[in-house]
Design a protein around this nucleic acid. Structure first.
Lengths: 191, 191
DNA sequence: ACCTGAACACCGTTCAAGT
DNA sequence: ACCTGAACACCGTTCAAGT
């Protein structure tokens, strides 16, 4: 890959530009198209130049996933019903993730790390759970159930888990909502 | 990779032997160690020889996953409480999958296909759901929720989704059981 | 500090040829 | 039909060197 810049001129890469190009690459070519070499090509740079800005490809995937979570709608602190707050938040998370389901699958397969956005959302969840009198270890457990359920559904959404033709997106969202209600009811009533 | 067989002597590979060696390889080296080349080496054969017995590596992973599901304990047809039957079955599925969590992650990341064992278990689930008067499309939906929940939890189990040190396995199983109860209660009461 | 040049140590898969 | 030999078209990552 020859570069078109005149010699000595810097590419001027930055971590933000690398992440931005990576998002575009995944959008254009799918997660299978996300290779360090393709990403470098898109940035007009040799593959190894990326390692001045990201530690590894895995770290890059973690960062991409956490970036997505910045789009999740948080309920306002003044929401009346904490169950509604949790439902809103988890549904928003599901919608954001389901739009990038292949990336989520890659993330799961690596037992992805948790970034700053994930951490922030996790704290909002704990506050809402506390208002349901679910605290301490029980709150941690309930949160884990909600997160695993949401991420799992998003990862599976493109083809579903049953036989037959691909599922319509609306159907998947409906099923997700039904299961979410069951979980929230169970959590709230400490069954 | 030189072969030790005398020339002209066949390796005598079969699909079953390839799958068996693949299971051993994953057990010994983890899912990252599952490469066509390593698998061939273990069988005393060149990498491309495998393609006489498996179509692609993805097909091999699908077959490995479905093999695992052969170990799932089905409730007897005479089980009194269908909820107990579902709980037993899903918990057994969870336990089998959690013992091979990395393989499950790989499966999810590829939107894995469904094999014969998965299909058989799915039919047992529908029969149990029917005894709860959950039939038709509602049954398909409930089943999908249960399966996604179970597989998702198994895939995430090694490190968990919250911060801090790795979770003890007993803790994960406990959380899984709690969420499963919420889901089953919700399904049975058609909330 | 940031990037190039070159290489290392791998991958999955295909194809022609032998038996 | 099953396997070898050889290759194709890739990967992620490292290291030394230039600026």
């Amino acid at each position: 890959m020859k570069q078109v810049r005149s010699p000595g001129q810097r590419a001027g890469l930055t971590q933000a530009r690398v992440l931005e190009a990576a998002h575009e690459l995944v959008a254009d070519e799918g997660v299978a198209g996300l290779t360090m070499r393709a990403l470098a090509g898109r940035l007009g740079v040799l593959p190894n130049a990326l390692y001045s800005h990201v530690a590894t490809k895995n770290a890059l995937v973690d960062a991409l996933l956490d970036d997505l979570l910045a789009q999740v709608a948080e309920p306002g602190a003044d929401v009346e019903d904490p169950i509604d707050g949790l439902r809103t938040m988890m549904t928003s998370t599901f919608e954001v993730l389901v739009a990038h389901a292949d990336l989520v699958g890659l993330y799961i397969s690596r037992q992805g790390a948790r970034g700053p956005n994930a951490q922030r959302l996790g704290e909002v969840m704990l506050r809402l759970l506390a208002r349901l009198d679910v605290t301490g270890e029980r709150a941690i457990d309930a949160r884990r159930v909600l997160i695993v359920y949401t991420i799992g559904f998003a990862a599976f959404s493109p083809r579903g888990v049953a036989d037959g033709p691909p599922l319509p997106a609306a159907k998947v969202a409906e099923d997700y909502a039904a299961g979410l209600d069951w979980l929230l009811t169970g959590i709230a009533t400490r069954k």
